[in-house]
């Protein structure tokens, strides 16, 4: 008996449908917010592949977001490529760079991995900060959006673009859900739980970590490309290390190890900072305290905690009782 309607998939479907339904009433700011959240959700899901599924805590994931964004910007603005191919190129570029970086970071564990991903991402930040050709610290304006005319749609309409981003996010979810439920995904889960045992069973750990590092880099690159199109602009700030920190927080707030958790985290954190920043100038302090509270007291995150209660309610004789 296979269960296709897992809690996670149903939740994802509900989120997508309600976003699409909401676009119509949302107005300009709501539509912009939906697009922004959808893009962040893609970004957060990509990081969760590393943090939640494989146990690789990266504090430099924004580098790939930035690479996707800059690739799209440079190719469209400077080289005159069309947006679709520059998007693909951004994804591939992010994947290539992830392959190079991953080749020597995946063998590192714990704190070393965290620090080195952080430092490497700052290297890209420093490069784009000083590179006048690509705008330096002023960034690079004038990035066009994907041409949706063949569907008879105008991507510059915020409602259309919001729908477009939600659909892309949904497709990313479906793809990653497929991957993480495959034997490959099972290997990653097992590596997360017990890397040594997995190795002694005969799995080449490094290769699998590298593979998921590349996938995560590519998906982050896609998010970056979408972000560049959304804002029409990219600057080195997109890859500053705090961006990596905040997306990590999103993943934690939503709950690691589930794609929907990352989506929920992206939405909650983005909306909270939106609301808080309109209330007080010192909203970052409250965000910081909120993060700390979640990390200390709700380790499973929002979706993780809710899912736990849901499963417990559905199946009251929880595993403990089966022990004998």
């Amino acid at each position: 008996m296979k269960n296709y309607f897992t809690l996670e998939r149903v939740t994802a479907l509900v989120i997508v449908v309600s976003c699409l339904g909401f676009v119509d009433f949302a107005g300009y700011y709501g539509q912009e917010l939906i697009a922004e959240i959808a893009i962040l959700a893609i970004f957060a899901m990509s990081l969760d592949l590393l943090v939640g599924y494989t146990g690789l805590v990266s504090l430099g994931h924004a580098a790939f977001l930035g690479i996707g964004a800059y690739a799209t910007g440079i190719l469209t603005v400077h080289m005159g490529w069309n947006v679709a191919s520059s998007m693909a190129a951004g994804v591939i570029m992010a994947g290539l760079i992830a392959a190079i970086i991953g080749a020597f970071v995946v063998r590192l564990g714990g704190i070393f991995f965290i620090m080195i991903t952080l430092a490497l991402s700052q290297m890209f930040y420093a490069y784009f900060l000083k590179n006048r050709e690509f705008g330096g610290d002023d960034g690079m304006p004038g990035i066009p959006r994907l041409d949706l005319e063949m569907f008879g749609l105008d991507a510059s309409d915020p409602a259309i673009f919001a729908v477009f981003t939600v659909i892309v996010a949904a497709l990313v979810f479906v793809l990653l859900d497929l991957i993480m439920n495959s034997p490959f995904g099972r290997y990653l889960l097992a590596i997360h739980q017990n890397e040594n045992r997995m190795r002694s069973l005969g799995a080449p750990i490094g290769l699998y970590k590298l593979a998921i590092f590349i996938v995560a880099g590519m998906v982050a690159g896609l998010a970056g490309s979408m972000q560049a199109q959304h804002m029409g602009f990219v600057s080195p700030d997109a890859m500053f290390w705090t961006v990596s920190g905040i997306v990590l927080i999103m993943v934690i707030v939503g709950g690691t190890g589930t794609l929907v958790g990352a989506v929920v985290g992206a939405a909650v954190v983005r909306m909270m900072s939106h609301e808080l920043s309109s209330l007080t100038e010192y909203w970052m302090m409250y965000m910081g305290l909120f993060f700390i509270g979640i990390v200390l007291f709700a380790g499973d995150g929002i979706y993780g905690t809710l899912a736990k209660y849901w499963h417990r309610a559905r199946d009251p004789k929880a595993p403990q009782d089966l022990a004998k």
Binding site: L178, I179, L201
Partner: peptide, 14 residues
């Protein structure tokens, strides 16, 4: 699964 070396398969449900 490791014994059968299935890890490269990413498109089919486990």
């Amino acid at each position: 699964a490791v014994a059968m070396q299935l890890g490269k398969i990413f498109w089919k449900s486990f």
